[in-house]
Design a binder for these strands. Structure first.
Lengths: 331, 331
DNA sequence: ATCATGGAGTTAAACGTTTAACTCCTATCG
DNA sequence: CGATAGGAGTTAAACGTTTAACTCCATGAT
């Protein structure tokens, strides 16, 4: 692949001049400039971003670490971040931690060695070991979706507390009193906050939910299925008439368990999910759920990150994005 | 961030020696080696992969271009590819073309400028303009999911023809004769091949499907919804009793249209999809579909690509991965 | 004693850019 | 007409590695 040197030779100028033309960083006589562009075209020259990155000490590459980019929620976040990156001429390196702090740590090191200009992190755990590595490195970063308490950094979160509250209020307003909750991993802030919202709404209605109504899942469909089966196995007097699942995947798992038990949603059991993934609208019955601005979170994270790269001093900002109840037919 | 030079100074050796220790490329006296490692640890040294990439002319970075990484199918492919990359110490740059050949072209150029060691491409169209760019660049690449006919290159495809055939046969065996088909964009090989499989099975059963039964979609749920509404609007004598949708998203759209019309699946209309996305098992009724080894396709593509990077001469291989009918309850 | 041998370190060039500093020339002004 | 300023090109250093080639020294063979 052609280099600056070859272009320069063909155009009969020095490599510096070529560089100035390419970057528009200094005035060059139109006639000379034309010769340069001609040579560039003739040789099919493409600037070497690796060399540029080394010299400028800016790679224009960002890193994104998510637990699992195949999960529709993170996939959407990643998409938003990629779009923001592309728009600002940044590239994106994708990393999957599988929720494993060790793998996350490994990826973090890789990204630092790769000299990315910034890192967006959806953390695998609430208190990652390697946080100090990240902070010490001085590389700009932004925390997305899962808060890391006690950390001074840009972050982009959904208003999960409000979301849990809205979902539960909706069920209460429909006359339900025995409302169960399928949680996510409890050390992660999104799940914890949604459950807090649930408890708050219940408390306001004067209900103290027994432990039996609160079942822990892992954000995957199968765990929602299992939790719902558990609820259905409770004696009639204790059995919930409604379920708030902390994400749509688990809600859809619950849907299946309810269907298999020969019961109907929402007639026998009402159901509210969280996330509003694309398919929530397409299951039967369409799922009432709390929509997060997922794509928007990714995009905002990207914009924030790029902004911070360009202006390091800015004090860290915490963005709490509004959620919204999407009423469909499952409750 | 510390450099080789600083490590060398601290260990009291030349930078070459440090490099040899780090890479294990030459014998170094144990005593000296220990001093080097000590200095590395003390300074928290991390090799600069940008500099290494420039010097070695190998970046250990791959590029992946997909139409939309938020689409569950491509997300899964991307995941497989990322895993294969990580396992072989490669990084992955993610690019979304939005199915737009121009954006795809732009990304291709970006990746070439970034000097990626290889490119995996899920093409936006059947005959991309920029193919020659790619071939001329000499960068190893692999084509995934969508074939580019007449191209000498590694490629990884699912056996779409067989898939369409299996799906249709299944419906025929259940006694259906009026079987409709919701296609994808017809210039893309996956859709075209699935439709060919459908036609072949129909022909073997002695049925010549009228054009009314073949409706074009765009692989998104909404288009499946619209197509199904169209089928339902046909006069009873012409109305299909079964639908083969060329992907699950469209099948789920159809499911919704059928539900809204007050009909039941599979009692009134049977339905078979394609892809077996995670959620296919969770819609009601669970969707009978043709499973592709999606993740596996991504992983294989990654392995193939890395293999080719290491051994350029190897003749191109075409991999046709088997599909499998997953019988659930929608047909 | 001489000399090839090989081990273990160093020197320096190269990878392909960017950019500060320099040169040379022309135009302008007093 | 001499001084000077500014325009437009060039030179060369730097970014942080890798690696070929070199040096130096101890060892062992002759």
């Amino acid at each position: 692949m052609a280099t600056l040197r070859e272009v320069a030779r063909r155009a009969g100028v020095s490599i510096a001049t070529v560089s100035y033309v390419l970057n528009g960083t200094r005035r060059v006589r139109p006639e000379v400039e034309a010769r340069v562009w001609e040579a560039v075209a003739a040789l099919g020259y493409r600037p070497n971003r690796v060399a540029r990155g080394l010299r400028r000490r800016r790679t224009h590459v960002l890193g994104l670490i998510v637990p699992d980019s195949a999960n529709p929620f993170f996939a959407e976040v990643a998409r938003g971040l990629e779009d923001a990156s592309f728009a600002a001429e940044y590239r994106l390196i994708l990393c999957n931690s599988d929720g494993d702090p060790l793998k996350e740590q490994r990826y973090l090191e890789v990204l630092l060695e790769q000299r990315v200009d910034g890192i967006a992190l959806v953390s695998a755990s609430a208190a990652p070991l390697h946080l100090s590595t990240l902070q010490a490195s001085g590389v700009p970063f932004v925390v997305v979706d899962r808060d890391l308490p006690g950390l001074e950094a840009d972050c982009v979160l959904a208003d999960n507390l409000q979301g849990g509250y809205l979902a539960t209020r909706h069920l209460l307003e429909r006359g339900h009193r025995r409302i169960a909750c399928i949680t996510g991993p409890s050390d992660l802030t999104p799940s914890a906050d949604r459950v807090r919202g649930y408890r708050q709404a219940m408390a306001e209605a004067g209900i103290e939910p027994p432990d039996l109504w609160i079942r822990r899942g892992d954000f995957r469909a199968e765990s929602g299925y299992q939790a719902a089966r558990f609820f259905l196995s409770l004696p009639p007097g204790l059995r919930p008439t409604a379920i708030f699942a902390c994400n749509d995947l688990m809600a859809i798992g619950a849907l299946r368990a309810i269907g298999e038990a020969g019961l109907a949603v929402p007639r026998d059991i009402a159901l509210v999910g969280f996330d509003d993934i694309t398919l929530a609208a397409y299951v039967i019955p369409p799922l009432t759920t709390v929509a997060q601005p997922t794509y928007e979170m990714g995009r905002l994270a990207g914009e924030l990150l790029i902004q911070r790269i360009q202006e390091r001093g800015r004090p860290p900002a915490r963005h709490l994005l509004p959620v919204r109840l999407v009423v469909r037919q499952s409750a």
